[in-house]
Design a protein around this nucleic acid. Structure first.
Lengths: 339, 339
DNA sequence: CTGAAAGCGCTTACAG
DNA sequence: CTGAAAGCGCTTACAG
């Protein structure tokens, strides 16, 4: 036989019709057990596998999800935020568990999104991951909605459709950070990250932090915010400029671990001891957080659960079932960068 | 119109035949420019995308590669060696650049490989990533060969088919480590990792290391090998047992960065100063290597280039072109864990 | 330059 | 329980 075996080949050798082969391999209750056995044996012998293109074409679905991973604009070639790599791992696992394949695609946030996986029947639904400018993001999400594409976003909310988002309780996470600093009496704090509606996740972390301090009668001044995107480099420079501007503080809350790691570097270079002079808290709990010195206190996001919820919600959407807005609980991990 | 538009819908609205629509959208030189323009406009208006299942079925190819990522047997849910996550990132990028999609699948090394992506026409070729027991691995690779599946392996060689492997020059990398230790006069070394044909990559690193020392008349005793798989935990325990057994050494070469990071922890817990009393060298240059304290000297593998070569070689195999065995040059990155 | 038609390999309603 | 047949939406050889 030349080329790959088809269901007709199996039918021929098993002495049945092609329809019966198809039914037998899909384990249809209509088929006689003995017939099934024979068909399966021939299929195994000929190393036959159902052609997914044909089967998908016929059934009009793909048993595949697509994951678009947006990168930070700085995006040098090998630098992906490890947090998203963990998410990707968790999503892949969750897909496998549900019998779905996962198409992965890295996207420049600035490019036209290659979000046509669903239109081209290559995927039944799409997962959107990554930070980016939220304002720009919204119009594109709206376009996906208009096309009736099934999708779930990590972090970013879609106007009027909270069910399409899975995210960490960023506000609550910010509060956890504030409460910890209150407890260790380090309330003269700065916040590093974008505290604006361009980065709603960071903004929520900031608001939770500010409100958490306020609940203990600590006023947080907006002058103590230094803007940064989620990279080590950006955290480093933001912290340096705070120091250069003579801002006095004994605690630093960074919107992400990468920012915090850059901040620690800047502090140490300036001869400022962490945690003796400045306590530092990050957000995410990437693996580097436990390696950096001093080990970083941080607000953990449960990436395993996040991946599972994203996939579960997306599959429900695809099946046309109702899905609820999903908020995952953060958890404070105390290490030696705060005291 | 209900459901998604098809090429017949476009044909209807553009006033041409369906064949012409297909040709126009594939930019066939046969079609009149004005006709193309009209067809494309209608396609855009109706948000038409070619159905990939139909097109793949017809052309018998998928423009998709599959990447199987094997996990270490310890594999707790969220722990994937960051080195492979970087490789995955680089492979994804390389695929995108070539116009291919990437299917990602995590596999337990012990399971039956879900390597049927090619048989089911879901992928044109397969990329195999990850450490595992090489002896077990070989028979499965042989099965892929027997099925005439197009694939490329990272690290592991396939008997008689060196062209199917892309790997780092592990032997040369081991030598780099040895030469560095000779230079800083720390030649009473131990090796942590599996130095056997079950882990050919680690074994090569070991052999390069041993031979590199021998070239400078330093004899390396096999009793200075402690077995470990590529996890922090395993490196930690291996190092502890060396210390417990009273083995004396002033240098430690770990087969991977994760092992090295675990080793540093064990040394520090035992009150042994790194690098004053023991110099430590890892392998990979994962991002944690620069965060750990002291920052880890390591042998870097160029993951960006690796991903590009893997994809390039696989595409050549798929096209039926000749491919050469590919060995990537390692590079020593000196940080503060050696002196 | 364009169209009518065959066929890629399945799944499933229909008929028995 | 099984088979013959239609049809999923394309691409491309063939004919003009």
């Amino acid at each position: 036989m030349k080329g790959k075996a088809t269901s007709f080949d199996i039918a021929h050798y098993a002495g049945v019709s092609q329809s019966t082969v198809s039914r037998a391999l899909r384990n249809s209750p209509l088929v006689n057990e003995e017939t099934k056995r024979r068909v399966r044996e021939v299929a195994r012998e000929l190393n036959y596998k159902v052609d997914k293109n044909a089967s998908n074409l016929r059934t009009q679905q793909s048993s595949t999800l697509a994951c678009l991973l947006f990168e930070d604009p700085t995006g040098d070639d090998s630098q992906i935020n490890p947090f998203f790599l963990n998410m990707l791992g968790s999503i892949t696992r969750a897909c496998a568990k549900e019998g779905y394949d996962l198409l992965v695609s890295f996207q420049q946030i600035s490019d036209d999104w290659r979000a046509d996986y669903e239109d081209s029947h290559r995927a039944d639904g799409i997962i959107l991951l990554g930070y980016g400018d939220y304002v720009d993001y919204q119009s594109r999400l709206q376009r996906l909605l208009d096309n009736n594409t099934k999708f779930v976003c990590w972090g970013a909310t879609v106007d009027g459709r909270p069910d399409l988002t899975v995210k960490c309780d960023n506000y609550g996470g910010g509060k956890l950070a504030a409460e910890h600093l209150v407890q260790i009496r380090r309330t003269n704090a700065v916040f590093i990250g974008d505290a604006s509606n361009h980065s709603p996740e960071f903004f929520d972390r900031y608001k939770g932090f500010r409100d958490g301090l306020a609940e203990h009668n600590v006023l947080f001044s907006e002058r103590n915010i230094a803007n940064a995107i989620s990279t080590e480099m950006s955290g480093y420079h933001a912290t340096r400029s705070l120091i250069a501007n003579n801002v006095k503080f004994n605690a630093l809350f960074a919107a992400s671990d990468l920012i915090a790691i850059g901040a620690i570097k800047a502090l140490q270079e300036a001869g400022i001891n962490v945690p003796k002079e400045v306590s530092v808290i990050g957000f995410d709990n990437i693996s580097a957080a436990s390696y950096v010195s001093p080990a970083l206190t941080t607000v953990q996001q449960n990436t395993t659960l996040a991946g599972q919820m994203i996939v579960a919600n997306l599959l429900n959407l695809i099946r046309g079932e109702a899905v609820e807005s999903t908020l995952l609980p953060p958890k404070l991990i105390v290490r030696s960068s705060t005291s």
